[in-house]
């Protein structure tokens, strides 16, 4: 029995994984960045399937709109690399591939032996608004205010740090 959603999931995930593979293998960096955009978009669709619409929107805005574009800028600023002639993988890539497969195998094995892995999503309660709950949770002092504020401080520190590191000293 195959549900339409399952078909959507399989298609999206296949495209996403394919795009991800292109990201890590493509020689041209600008193309790799564009493949990254595609992969991130696929993940955004999965977020929709998970009924987390806010995260899908955030994914598009932050990852695709900001991070991916930033990377394209970075690639273009370091122009010489964009047309780097040699191989784009280093000498230890076979080991890296083995390790990546090992990790994948390990996780799949764990998923296989976990008895709740096959569970289905419970229906959301009537009138449950995840986005509102999230907003309240983030600003309630007894819930996640402090982690949230610390994350914002981290962001600020990263901003200042990025400026300082990239500052061109005459």
């Amino acid at each position: 029995m195959i549900y339409p959603l399952q078909v959507v999931f399989i298609l999206v995930s296949a495209v996403t994984l394919g795009a991800a593979l292109m990201v890590v293998t493509t020689r041209n960096m600008v193309r790799a960045a564009l493949w990254l955009v595609l992969a991130l978009f696929g993940v955004a669709i999965l977020f929709v399937l998970l009924e987390a619409g806010f995260f899908a929107v955030a994914q598009v805005i932050i990852y695709i709109g900001a991070i991916a574009i930033l990377m394209i800028f970075a690639v273009m600023l370091t122009r010489r690399i964009a047309q780097d002639p040699g191989p784009q993988l280093n000498s230890t890539w076979p080991i890296a591939a083995v390790i990546a497969l090992l990790v994948f195998g390990l996780i799949v094995f764990l998923v296989q032996v976990w008895d709740r892995a096959a569970s289905l999503p419970p229906p959301l309660p009537q009138g449950f608004a995840p986005l509102q709950e999230l907003g309240v949770a983030l600003v309630s002092a007894d819930r996640y205010l402090i982690p949230f504020e610390i994350a914002s401080v981290l962001l600020l520190a990263a901003l200042i740090g990025a400026i300082v590191v990239a500052w061109e000293r005459k």
Partner: peptide
Amino acid sequence: MIPLSWYLIFAAALFSIGLFGVLSRK
């Protein structure tokens, strides 16, 4: 309906691909 394991296996695959990229790209 989509079982949880599908997402987990997808995430594992994506993670492994990312890991490979981190370990092998120049």
